[in-house]
Amino acid sequence: MLIWERPEPAARSSLSPLSRDRIVRAAVGLADDDGLTAVSLRKVAAALDAGPMRLYRYVDTKEELLDLMLDAVYAEIPLPEPAEGDEGDEGDEGDWEASVRTLAHGLRGAALRHEWFADLLGGRPQFGPAALGHLEAVLAALRRAPGIADDDPNALMHALQAVNGYVFGAVRHEIVELRVERESGQTEHEWQAASGPYLRRLIATGRYPALAHLVTRGADQDPAAMFTAGLDVILTGLAAPSRPAAGGGRRT
């Protein structure tokens, strides 16, 4: 039985009372301070001044604990207001895009507060209530996008993969860069200054014209602006009305 269906044990009088909420908050604190490698049932028990065996009444495995931690962070992400009208109603034309932006930026903000969160994104589906609420909100917004063919679950899945693929990947990339800066003691601008002469020599060979175009003409953007610009590319495609496929069906 998944932990989401398993009732929490009844509270017991103790010098160090436990609950799943206390266990998860302690685990999140450890991960925030020292990453996921700092999280184990034994270390969480020590942080709560409790014996490790007591935690097994609430959580069976470390994997369950990670699921609970992930859901706790998803619960921090604000959900957009639901679109007016009945299910399947398109609602306001632009509200789907605003909703996707709200959810994407909310997820990025959560990852910047809890860097380990990025390490757990993707992979197997998450069935915690907050994670499912976030997924439902993303799907509800994408169903109203002009680029999603009417009642086409495959088109909806493709749109979800495109949005999540971008958001998860961009967030992970940003977190990795933050970690590299901390571990190397060198900021992005310092690294660019140090590697600049080598890159200019490569560009001067003429073998990398596309890279030269990007490096010499591209504007330097902060991470938030870069994230927004990349999201714009995805949403622009979804905003284009779907067109009939060659075989008479619909495609996005």
Results as ranks from 00 to 15, higher is better:
His134Leu: 14
Arg124Phe: 04
Ala159Gly: 09
Ala131Ile: 13
Gly128Met: 06
Ala131Trp: 11
His158Arg: 15
His134Lys: 02
Ala137Asp: 04
Asn154Lys: 07
Gly123Ala: 06
Pro129Lys: 13
Pro153Val: 02
Arg143Asn: 12
Ala145Gly: 10
Ala141Gln: 03
Ala141Glu: 08
Ala140Asn: 11
Pro129Ile: 13
Arg143Phe: 00
Ala145Ser: 15
Met157Arg: 13
Ala141Ser: 12
Ala155Tyr: 00
Glu136Cys: 03
Pro153Arg: 12
Ala130Trp: 04
Pro129Arg: 15
Gly123Asn: 10
Leu139Tyr: 00
Ala131Phe: 10
Pro129Met: 15
Arg143Glu: 14
Ala159Cys: 02
Met157Ala: 15
Phe127Tyr: 14
Asp151Tyr: 10
Val138Gly: 01
Arg124Glu: 14
Ile148Trp: 01
Ala137Phe: 03
Leu139Trp: 00
Val138Lys: 06
Asn154Glu: 14
Asn154Met: 14
Gly122Phe: 05
Ala131Gln: 10
Leu132Gly: 09
Leu156Glu: 06
Arg124Ala: 15
Leu135Arg: 15
Asp151Phe: 00
Asn154Leu: 08
Gly147Phe: 08
Pro153Ser: 10
Ala130His: 11
Ala131Asn: 06
Ala145His: 12
Ala155Trp: 00
Ala137Arg: 04
Ala140Thr: 12
Pro153Ala: 02
Gly147Cys: 11
Ile148Phe: 00
Arg124Lys: 14
Arg144His: 05
His158Trp: 03
Pro125Cys: 08
Arg124Thr: 13
